[in-house]
Amino acid sequence: MTLDIAYSPCPNDTFVFDAWAHGRIPDAPALDVTFADIDLTNGMAERGEFNILKVSYAVLPYVLDEYALLPCGGALGRGCGPLVLTREAGVDLTGKTVAVPSEKSTAYLLFRLWAADVLPQGVGEIVVLPFHEIMPAVRDGRVDAGLVIHEARFTYQNYGLHRLADMGEHWEATTGLPIPLGAIIAKRSLGTETLKSLAEAARTSVRMAWDDPEASRAYVLEHAQEMDPAVADRHIGLYVNEFTADLGEDGYAAVRGLLTRAAAEGLVPPLGRDALSFP
């Protein structure tokens, strides 16, 4: 059996899925991989286009009727939240234009929850841009601020930009929970046994990557879009952690907490009682 899967070319995803994607896990279903940025995979999930997808946790309320959340393979953590960047330090974003990678991204939900606390008058226009275009747009003055994710934490100084706020710091300070970022979902129609086998394959792939990091290096760097290898390593170290192997109690609490707070703000539909349960 071969199943189609879509995930990003970011180092954390290629690191996690390397062993599985290359057929090194005995008895695991074969994968037909498509690379796509998170805004695209979120849309794919809403249209039900792939069997397995890496998506933003923010899109779960829209897709959990058709997809199940796998308890492993995704991205949560501490000290790894999205950043708001500006050209000048200390900018007041009230009424300003902010570029975001997706309006259905977890980064955007965290941003909206932060803004609700610290910008009572609200921001101005929200502009959706591909992830790699956001920092140049801020640098060139096409937008007033940018919401960035992933390796931008390590490279924004190269664009002469300033960190205005850290969405993860705000989330952790107000909740005490890890930051939920990206989820792995699979179609419920695959059946309970297949879903369990997918979760086991994802967990095994993570552990194999940890056991032999060099095995995935060529795959990671091939798709890292000219990223410095040292930055790729820092990226993996930050986003691939114990929650990738198993969401656990704190991981599920973080996901429920984010989506419950977002629903209370009217940002997403409310979750059903058992929406996050796994077979």
Score class of each variant (00 low, 15 high):
Leu198Gln: 04
Gly122Ser: 07
Tyr67Cys: 10
Thr41Leu: 01
Leu147Trp: 02
Pro26His: 08
Val143Gly: 10
Leu83Glu: 10
Val128Phe: 01
Pro269Gly: 08
Leu267Gln: 07
Glu103Pro: 00
Leu64Asn: 02
Leu3Tyr: 06
Ala173Thr: 12
Ala99Val: 00
Gly251Val: 08
Arg78Ile: 11
Ala224Gln: 11
Ala45Tyr: 02
Pro178Trp: 05
Phe50Lys: 15
Ile52Leu: 14
Ser277Glu: 15
Arg163Glu: 15
Thr204Trp: 12
Ala199Met: 04
Asn12Met: 14
Val127Met: 01
Trp20Gln: 07
Val240Gly: 09
Ala137Pro: 03
Ser102Gly: 14
Gly146His: 05
Glu49Phe: 03
Phe35Ile: 03
Val220Tyr: 01
Phe278Pro: 07
Phe50His: 15
Thr97Ala: 13
Ala107Lys: 00
Ala253Leu: 06
Ile126Met: 10
Val148Cys: 09
Asp140Ile: 00
Ile38Gln: 08
Leu93Thr: 10
Tyr156Glu: 02
Leu110Gly: 01
Ala232Gln: 04
Leu259Thr: 11
Pro269Ser: 05
Pro213Tyr: 13
Leu198Trp: 09
Asp228Ser: 14
Glu103Asp: 13
Asn241His: 06
Gly251Asn: 09
Gly23Gln: 02
Gly43Met: 02
Asp250Ile: 09
Ala165Thr: 09
Met44Asp: 11
Ala183Ile: 11
Ala145Lys: 01
Gly248Ile: 10
Glu46Pro: 01
Thr174Glu: 05
Ile25Gln: 06
Ala116Ser: 13
Phe17Thr: 04
Val100Gln: 00
Val220Asn: 05
Leu109Pro: 06
Leu109His: 12
Asp117Phe: 06
Leu40His: 01
Asp166Pro: 01
Met167Tyr: 14
Leu238Val: 09
His150Trp: 05
Glu200Ser: 13
Leu119Val: 11
Ala68Leu: 13
Val206Asp: 01
Ser205Phe: 12
Arg153Met: 02
Arg87His: 08
Phe50Trp: 11
Ile25Trp: 09
Thr204Asp: 07
Val33Glu: 10
Ser8Glu: 04
Leu31Met: 15
Gly266Trp: 08
Tyr67Thr: 11
Glu88His: 11
Pro229Lys: 09
Ser102Lys: 00
Ala30Ile: 03
Gly73Ile: 06
Phe131Ser: 01
Ala36Asn: 04
Arg203His: 12
Ile184Asn: 06
Asp211Arg: 15
Gly79Asn: 10
Asp65Ala: 15
Arg203Gln: 15
Leu129Asp: 05
Asp233His: 09
Leu198Asp: 05
Ala201Pro: 07
Leu247Ser: 13
His150Cys: 15
Thr106Phe: 03
Ile184Glu: 06
Leu85Ser: 01
Ile184Ser: 07
